[in-house]
Every structure is written in structure tokens, then in C-alpha cells.
Design a protein around this nucleic acid. Structure first.
Lengths: 121, 121
DNA sequence: TTGATCGGTAAGCCGTGGTTTACTGTTAGT
DNA sequence: ACTAACAGTAAACCACGGCTTACCGATCAA
């Protein structure tokens, strides 16, 4: 149910960049910020958003803070997409077998476009 | 490649609602807007964004336009997450094997592996 | 044709949020 | 003890984008 935060967190390009920097393993903030075109405080704030979304976690290491990717956030997001995916496929299946007069099967380009479809409301 | 647009499009709660309304099959704009707390033009704009992200497609049907979910956008998004997921798992695997090496700091040249926790999961 | 329905577009308002600068706190090293 | 390095926080700025109202074209029904 936290996928909203995850998807919202990953929507920002810079924040996604920050996130992707941790792809290869834990890094301190300064290390993440290096090479990016935003300042370190900005990175800190991005990391906070990512943390609240369950996408990363921090561990104190002296004066540094090691950030690493957390599985939970990604899992939530994948679960959401998968559920959605299944629903969509199911609806396509129903539409295909049931309402033949209905629109394209998405695989077949330019369907006959029968227009006798009455409005439901 | 287009996953950026997809994730950005789905980040907005209202737009996600619009998108989810199409989960069960194609709908005309007015039908999508019905019950939502935003006006129909707003829905139209959301649909345009979703369309550019490859998440939905439209088909003319008389004076109406039937919007339906498009596979491509979701696929791109899933592919991105899957790749990411694999990379993360790989990095965890490496980190576990090599007893956690300092891929983090170049400033402290391999400090005594003081307190380093590893979290596998 | 006239009138009504459907829906895309333009312009403007305005809140959200990403960024920077400045500051503070904490820890390591000498 | 003092200093330097690291990083989180606060405040302010401002661009972006989501929403509304108003308008327009297209299509269907009578």
C-alpha cells in the first residue's frame, strides 16, 4: 500500500539518479552527491524522501551515513504493477471472448472500428 | 527508455486514478471523469499525459473517444524495475561474498572493518 | 439546419516541491 | 582542546504542473 510513495519518489529524475547510484552497493551521502549537478543538501533531502518511501535505509558509520537500497519499496511497487497487469490482461481476455463487437485487441492494428456501441451510463 | 514518462505519469494520484479507471476496459472520457473530483478538462489533460507515456491509447468513436490501457508503457516500467531489481540483488550477493568491501570510501583507505553490519534478506 | 452531446485546447491561477545558501550538530584526528 | 570532515535542517526562492473557466470544433439526433 506504500507504492504511492515509492512511485512518487522515483518520479523525479534527480532523485532517481540518486537512487540509482546506490544500485551497486551502499554509499555515504557525499559520495552520492559527487558528480551530480545538485548540491549535497539537495541529495540529503532526496535521500530522506527515498527513505520514507521505503526505498533506501541508512546506517551510521562514524560521521558518515551509509545509504543502501531497501527491498521493501521496490517490492511494493512491483506488486502494484503486477496486480494491475493481471487485471488488464483479464479485462482484455473478457473483452476478446465476450464482447466481440468491441474494439481492437491491441495486437491487431486498425480494427474494424464498428461503431454500434451504445453508451452506458 | 520511456519508463521515465510512465513513472512520471503514474506519480500523480489523480492521474493514477484516471488510469485505474481503465483497468476494466475501454471508457469514454466523460465516463472516466464521472465520480472524480476534478473536471472533465482535467481528465482530458491527464489522459493526454498518459497517452504520451504510452500508457493509454485513444480510438475515435463518433463524438466520443474511447481510451484504453496500452501495454507498452507498463512493460517499459516493469522492465526498468526488473533490471534494477537484478542489479540490486547482484550487489547484495557480491557484498555478502566479499565480506563487504569498502566500495564506499576513497577518502578513508580501507579502515579497519570496524562495525559493519550486513543485512541480507 | 438546429440543437445537444462529447471532448480537446488556451489561458491563467496557485499550491507543491526541488534547489540553494546558511547554519547546526556530531564524530574523527591531531 | 581545537579543527576538519560529514551530513541533516531551516528558510527562502521560483519554476513547474495540476486545476479551473471559457471557448472551440466535431458529430449525432430531431
Amino acid at each position: 500500500m506504500a507504492y504511492q510513495q515509492a512511485i512518487q519518489a522515483l518520479a523525479d529524475p534527480t532523485r532517481r539518479l540518486v537512487f540509482e547510484r546506490l544500485r551497486g552497493g551502499p554509499l555515504p551521502v557525499g559520495r552520492v552527491a559527487r558528480g551530480l549537478r545538485v548540491t549535497r543538501p539537495a541529495v540529503s533531502q532526496h535521500l530522506r524522501v527515498l527513505e520514507r518511501a521505503g526505498l533506501v535505509s541508512a546506517e551510521k558509520d562514524g560521521t558518515r551515513r551509509l545509504y543502501r537500497i531497501e527491498h521493501r519499496g521496490l517490492e511494493d511497487l512491483r506488486r502494484y504493477l503486477d496486480r494491475f497487469w493481471d487485471d488488464v490482461l483479464e479485462s482484455f481476455r473478457l473483452e476478446a471472448e465476450h464482447g466481440v463487437e468491441s474494439k481492437s485487441s491491441s495486437r491487431t492494428p486498425t480494427p474494424p472500428a464498428s461503431r454500434r456501441k451504445r453508451r452506458m451510463r
